[in-house]
């Protein structure tokens, strides 16, 4: 990690560690905003970490904030810091003014006959606005939230679909030739969060099997347990590496791979983590559920395994047998 990376990571992780408890996550899922946590993060300037210094930001790159986004997953932080950083980043990229008190989250917009449909998974009651990115025109729209409820995701997020009539729509700004699309930006964030959640699920599992005694010894001494955790750890390592690459290159293809690998790994990780924990891991009291429920939810947000697999596979087949290897080694595969 570079100096900037470790500095902002340590700042964020310290704040997470100070605030995020079982109780705070439970309250967050029940709709209570984590206001104190937000105050500290805001005071540290983290929501605008990706904005230029002229725009009041830290001037960080996505690579610089990878550790932070991963940590929001690792600690099941009940506040969508990654989605908020993304909204500020988009606004800054497009030169769009953000109202002083606004807490915006990134959302996907799609123009319809009557106006625009906005989809968002809102992980906290704290945000005040959506910053909707319309993928065809690359226009950004700031939409105030007004207590809409929607359905709930397994992670406790409000799943909102807002239909905004055309007469109420006024684009705030336009992105010029963005490197990403709305769904790849969302997928990149979720891949990193999933990587973090998997790391904690692995850590909890290892600690638990070293503590839990049956047949006169810690169950981690049994090969049956060791083999499962070893296999699981390989999937965790793959997810972390793939997500890290996505934040390094910001290429759509790498993001698609990261989200797909995360989705596949999540199946193994949730399975094994619960299996080695036994009944305690299935309780609300124990914290594993905060992670596994998020892994199930995030796996479906911004593209499932089959969504990304079909896009990657279609691209590979179009490339053709003899061009695949040069395209892989030249990092030239696209979606």
């Amino acid at each position: 990690m570079s100096e900037l990376q470790s500095m902002i990571f340590e700042t964020a992780d310290r704040i997470f560690a100070d605030h995020v408890t079982h109780d705070l996550i439970a309250k967050g899922e029940a709709g209570v905003p984590a206001s104190n946590l937000w105050q500290d993060l805001n005071f540290a300037g983290l929501p605008k970490a990706l904005c230029s210094e002229e725009a009041g930001g830290i001037g960080g790159t996505w690579r610089d904030v990878f550790g932070i986004v991963k940590a929001t997953g690792a600690r099941a932080v009940p506040l969508p810091l990654g989605d908020i950083m993304a909204a500020h980043w988009l606004a800054d990229q497009a030169g769009m003014e953000m109202p002083e008190e606004a807490i915006p989250v990134f959302a996907m917009g799609k123009k319809s006959a009557r106006g625009m449909t906005i989809d968002v998974e809102l992980e906290s009651a704290l945000p005040t606005h959506l910053l909707a990115w319309e993928g065809e025109t690359n226009e950004l729209f700031l939409v105030a939230l007004a207590g809409q409820m929607g359905s709930r995701s397994l992670a406790g997020a409000r799943q909102l679909r807002l239909d905004i009539p055309a007469e109420q729509l006024r684009a705030g700004a336009k992105l010029k030739a963005p490197q990403l699309t709305p769904i790849t930006l969302g997928a990149m964030l979720r891949a990193a969060q999933m990587a973090g959640a998997m790391e904690t699920a692995l850590r909890l599992s290892v600690d638990y099997v070293n503590e839990r005694v049956q047949f006169g010894r810690p169950i981690g001494k049994f090969q049956a347990i060791q083999q499962q955790l070893a296999m699981m750890s390989g999937h965790v390592a793959s997810t972390v590496r793939a997500a890290e690459v996505a934040f390094e290159t910001i290429r759509e293809f790498d993001i698609a791979c990261a989200k797909l690998v995360a989705g596949e790994a999540a199946e193994v990780v949730t399975d094994v983590a619960h299996q080695v924990h036994g009944a305690i891991g299935f309780t609300y009291e124990y914290q594993l559920q905060f992670l596994t429920r998020r892994l199930w939810a995030w796996g479906s947000e911004y593209g499932t395994i089959s969504y990304w697999a079909e896009r990657i596979g279609g691209s590979v087949l179009r490339e053709g047998a003899d061009n695949i290897w040069p395209a892989v080694t030249g990092n030239r595969l696209t979606l």
Binding site: A237, S238, R241, A242, V245, D254, A256, C257, L260, V261, E264, I305, S306, W308, A309, E310, R311, I312, G313, G314, V316, L317, R318, G320, A321, D322, I324, V328, L333
Partner: peptide
């Protein structure tokens, strides 16, 4: 990939996509 051809059906695209993502990730590691 050569046998499937340049389009493939949905099942083939999905399966090739899954293999590709794993291959690319293993290579990075």
């Amino acid at each position: 990939i050569r046998e499937i051809g340049s389009d493939g059906d949905r099942m083939q695209r999905v399966a090739i996509g899954r293999l590709t993502a794993r291959l690319v990730t293993l290579r990075r590691m």
